[in-house]
């Protein structure tokens, strides 16, 4: 564990707390993509099934349980308690275009040919693009509540912090995880456009609005 990874994980944790706070404070899931949240549940379940078979650390186990349960809870909030505030008509990204290619990539690129390992690869590839329905929705509506942009910024920061973590591990431990690194760089790149608007508008006290 190094500081980049630790702060990355904390940023990930914070993003979920911000998301739950947004839903609670506005009593609404408006502006959130159900598809993205459902993809995150898929990602966490696919990757963290090993919580039953592998033990890394107490920290690792607790985080896995937190990510699986909190992402499922968000789905419940979107489809249960706050269902009336969810608008599926603007959440139109076709997730099958993500699931299919990620499944194919996982069948081609993995470290071992076993069910859990292929599932692990699938979750890595899927996580890298899981934010797309949300970004697509943002693009479509052209605006976002400030609190929602803080959620996205924390999520993006988590991914960005993993990159120096890999560089650090490369020279301190001499290890490299090509699948995670490749997917992680793609994932971080997807946030660049969002970050540009976040830094130039939201952090200057303006509303998140995209030029028409």
């Amino acid at each position: 564990m190094n500081l980049f990874r630790f702060f990355g994980d904390m940023s990930h944790l914070a993003s979920i707390l911000i998301l739950l706070y947004k839903i609670h404070a506005t009593r609404s899931v408006r502006g959130l993509s159900f598809k993205t949240q459902a993809l995150y549940v898929t990602v966490f379940v696919a990757r963290y099934l090993d919580v039953f078979t592998e033990f890394v650390s107490v920290y690792n186990t607790l985080m896995k349980i937190f990510f699986i349960s909190s992402s499922c809870f968000v789905l419940y909030l979107m489809k249960g308690r706050y269902r009336p505030t969810n608008d599926p008509s603007i959440d139109t990204f076709r997730v099958e275009y993500l699931l299919g290619p990620c499944a194919l990539l996982a069948l081609i690129f993995h470290y071992r040919w076993s069910f859990l390992e292929v599932l692990w690869s699938f979750s890595i590839f899927l996580e890298s693009v899981a934010i797309l329905p949300q970004l697509f929705m943002l693009q479509r509506t052209g605006e976002a509540e400030t609190i929602t942009t803080h959620y996205l910024a924390a999520l993006g920061a988590y991914r960005a912090l993993y990159i120096p973590n890999w560089i650090y591990r490369y020279w301190s431990e001499d290890v490299i995880d090509p699948i995670a690194v490749t997917a992680g760089i793609v994932q971080t790149a997807l946030y660049l456009d969002f970050f540009y608007v976040y830094f130039t508008k939201v952090l200057q006290g303006q509303k998140f609005e995209l030029p028409a």
């Binding site: 994980d9 890394v56 690792n60 470290y111 692990w120 973590n165 290890v175 995880d177 090509p178």
Partner: peptide, 10 residues
């Protein structure tokens, strides 16, 4: 460098 294949990251 060697590939980790160890999934110790989240």
């Amino acid at each position: 460098a060697q590939e980790t294949g160890l999934h110790d990251e989240l």
